[in-house]
Computed example of a mutant assay.
Amino acid sequence: MALHNALEQLLAFQYVAEELSFKKAADQLFLTPTALSHRIKKLEQQLNLQLFERRIRSITLTPEGEYLLKHVRTGFEQIQSALHQLEQHKQRLFTITTIPSFASEWIIPYLPELQNRFPNIMFRVHASYDLVNMNSGLYDLAIRYGSGGYQHVTTELLATDEYVAVGHPSLNTQEMHWKTVPLIHFTWGDEYCPNLVNWQKWFEKRGLQIHAGQPQVFYTQESHAIQAVLSGQGVALLSRTAIANDLKQGRMKIVSAYSEPAWNYYLLTPPDADSVVYEVKNWCKEKFSQSFI
């Protein structure tokens, strides 16, 4: 007996046996009484058993039919329970896309806490500066750095930002000279860099200049520049938002009162986002705000 046909026939049998009516069972299964009767006869032929006593205006179960009904009920209940358990314990893939520095400084350190809070969710972190299409179905939450004006998404301001000059906490700012201090650069590329914040323009606005022979190193990722500062390699112009945790924990310090305005951080969600998306978004806001207390 083919499994598919067997399940259909056993389900038909259960409905007829519980209703003791071909018409009522057929209505519930969206079948004609003739089609339903055919399934029952097919089952009886394959089992070589009579499951019902058919009378003119009623039907009753035979002893064999009563025995089969008991086990068919148990079987379908177990199947339903198994399906329910699978549904309850299946893991959902939840993708957060953000810029690399935010992923390194904000998402990755807190990811174990996020996983503990949402045990049935499998998180994926996508790090990129590229524009993101939230209607593609590929992303659940986006954290982007920009000037706003995002279309066809739900947008919420996470933080305004500025670029500050920072160094290792051991750096003696009283003895530091801007002519000799090692400069740490990072380049986003013109299509990403907010207001083209860099040391060259920062020095010019302060009436200073970078001197020939002054130690300098260039990185293509802000997260690498952050690591260079943490290891005491020099001073860098970094996003105050990106390094908020490092400043709060005393792992680096601001070495100049001058700052440069920059873009803002935004939370982007699809227009049809469900409750899980909003819960994760609120968790992100909560963790983020704690670093500015």
Rank of each mutant, 00 (worst) to 15 (best):
K285T: 07
R39F: 13
E44M: 09
P194D: 07
H89R: 05
F52G: 04
S256L: 15
P119S: 02
F52K: 02
K90F: 00
K281S: 07
L158V: 13
Y265M: 13
G250Y: 09
E162S: 14
T180S: 07
L196H: 09
H185W: 07
D161A: 04
D190I: 08
D140H: 10
M1Y: 03
E66V: 02
G189P: 06
L36I: 11
V72F: 14
P63N: 08
T160F: 12
L3V: 03
Q200Y: 10
I108H: 09
H89D: 04
Y278M: 14
L111P: 01
L68M: 15
Q290G: 06
S231C: 06
E286C: 01
E286S: 06
R117S: 01
G213Y: 09
Y258R: 08
F13T: 10
V72W: 08
S136F: 12
G189I: 14
Q214S: 01
D140S: 04
A257N: 07
F94L: 00
H84L: 06
N5H: 04
S289F: 11
T34V: 14
Q216N: 08
S231V: 01
K287M: 13
R117P: 02
A225T: 03
Q14N: 13
T74L: 13
D130G: 10
L93R: 00
M176T: 07
H168K: 07
G234M: 12
L208T: 00
G137M: 10
Y192M: 03
D161S: 05
G167Q: 04
R55E: 10
G250E: 05
K285A: 07
N120Q: 00
T98G: 03
R73D: 15
K287R: 13
L183E: 01
Y266N: 06
L93G: 00
Q227C: 03
E175T: 11
Y15D: 03
R57N: 06
C193Q: 12
V229R: 00
F52Q: 02
G167A: 07
Q14P: 09
F218P: 10
C284G: 08
N48W: 10
F288T: 01
L29Q: 05
E113C: 00
L29N: 06
R73V: 14
G148N: 04
E222T: 15
H211N: 06
A26H: 12
M176G: 05
G149T: 02
G146V: 12
H211S: 11
H168P: 04
Q80N: 05
G189Y: 11
M252N: 03
P112A: 11
D130Q: 08
W178F: 12
I59M: 11
G65S: 07
P194K: 05
S21Y: 13
Q9W: 14
G167K: 03
N5F: 04
L36K: 09
A2G: 05
T241N: 03
F94G: 00
R206D: 08
M176A: 12
Y265N: 08
I184Y: 08
Q216H: 13
I210C: 00
S104F: 11
Q46L: 06
T98A: 06
K23Q: 08
Q85T: 01
L68Y: 07
R54L: 10
N195F: 15
F76L: 11
Y219S: 14
E53H: 07
L230Q: 04
A26W: 10
L51V: 05
V164M: 10
A273R: 04
N135K: 02
Q221W: 14
A244G: 06
K253V: 01
F118Y: 06
S239C: 08
E286D: 04
D161P: 02
V217G: 10
T160W: 13
E279S: 15
